[in-house]
Simulated scan of single mutants.
Amino acid sequence: MKYYFTTILIFFAFAIQAQKLFETPPGTVRVNDSLYIDKGPVDNIMYLEFTDKVKDLWNLTLHDSLKSLELENINKSLSSHSLNPEQSKEIYNKIILAKNQKISDSINILYYFNHPEYQYHPVVGISKDRARLFCQWRTDMVNLKWSKEIKDDKRKYKKIKYRLPTYEEFELAKKTMEENNNLLLVNQNSPIDLDLKKLLNEDNFILLSIPEFTTSNRNFKEDSPKLKNTDKPNDDYIFFRCICEI
């Protein structure tokens, strides 16, 4: 019995230590053992990096080739997978923001998206298809980064996948962060007032007063009680964030 009890203690000690070694995906907080979620909505500077990288460095052919590879083999395989300039151009044309939509009386969406003053403000007016492409690109960028570090780093890395959260996962994240006292409620309604860099700290999970969606084929349940009548979001100010599977 004493031996059995000692074995259990050793097992739990090892499990706790192993969990500490696993790297938290960039920009996220832990929901449970396999899910992490962005601390706040995706901001303009993150989406701008996405549009810049797609021009020359990323497309779906490359994404598909990386999905089946183990983390330690991803970086070595890059030289054997040629990029497809035509496909990259096609994706770029889909993801750039070309709307002249007004955010305020004096600011339109393109000015808001490109001006340095708003680089840490939530990206707005993004469709679900664009958001999905962003998640796929982000998956590859983080896995590539970790594949380069894995040989020379004592921390343990696991292959990850970014995607859009389900309604249930978003509700679970809110509940978990509230229980952990990491929930930061923000009441500003306009993206112009939402400087995420000033709001975020190491553990904060920012919950906005506007429900988070994308502008087409919305990710969350349309029949949710939270979306009835005046709670339905304004299409002008629709944000998104990613969830990360490990």
Rank of each mutant, 00 (worst) to 15 (best):
residue 217 N to S: 14
residue 170 F to H: 09
residue 173 A to E: 04
residue 214 T to G: 05
residue 161 K to R: 15
residue 197 K to G: 00
residue 198 K to N: 02
residue 170 F to S: 05
residue 160 I to S: 13
residue 197 K to S: 05
residue 219 N to G: 13
residue 162 Y to R: 09
residue 213 F to M: 10
residue 221 K to Y: 09
residue 157 Y to L: 15
residue 203 D to N: 13
residue 200 L to E: 02
residue 172 L to A: 09
residue 220 F to M: 10
residue 210 I to K: 10
residue 201 N to F: 04
residue 196 L to I: 15
residue 188 Q to N: 12
residue 158 K to I: 11
residue 155 R to Q: 12
residue 153 D to I: 01
residue 168 E to Y: 10
residue 164 L to G: 03
residue 210 I to S: 08
residue 185 L to G: 05
residue 200 L to M: 12
residue 198 K to Q: 01
residue 218 R to P: 07
residue 170 F to E: 02
residue 201 N to I: 03
residue 212 E to H: 03
residue 163 R to Y: 12
residue 191 P to G: 09
residue 156 K to G: 07
residue 207 L to I: 09
residue 200 L to Y: 01
residue 157 Y to W: 13
residue 215 T to E: 02
residue 164 L to V: 05
residue 215 T to N: 05
residue 206 I to Q: 01
residue 175 K to W: 03
residue 206 I to K: 01
residue 181 N to W: 00
residue 206 I to F: 02
residue 193 D to N: 11
residue 153 D to P: 12
residue 174 K to M: 05
residue 204 N to W: 02
residue 188 Q to L: 07
residue 173 A to L: 07
residue 191 P to W: 03
residue 168 E to A: 14
residue 154 K to T: 13
residue 181 N to I: 05
residue 202 E to M: 06
residue 221 K to S: 12
residue 211 P to E: 00
residue 158 K to V: 15
residue 156 K to N: 11
residue 209 S to K: 15
residue 152 D to Y: 11
residue 165 P to Y: 02
residue 154 K to P: 10
residue 182 N to F: 01
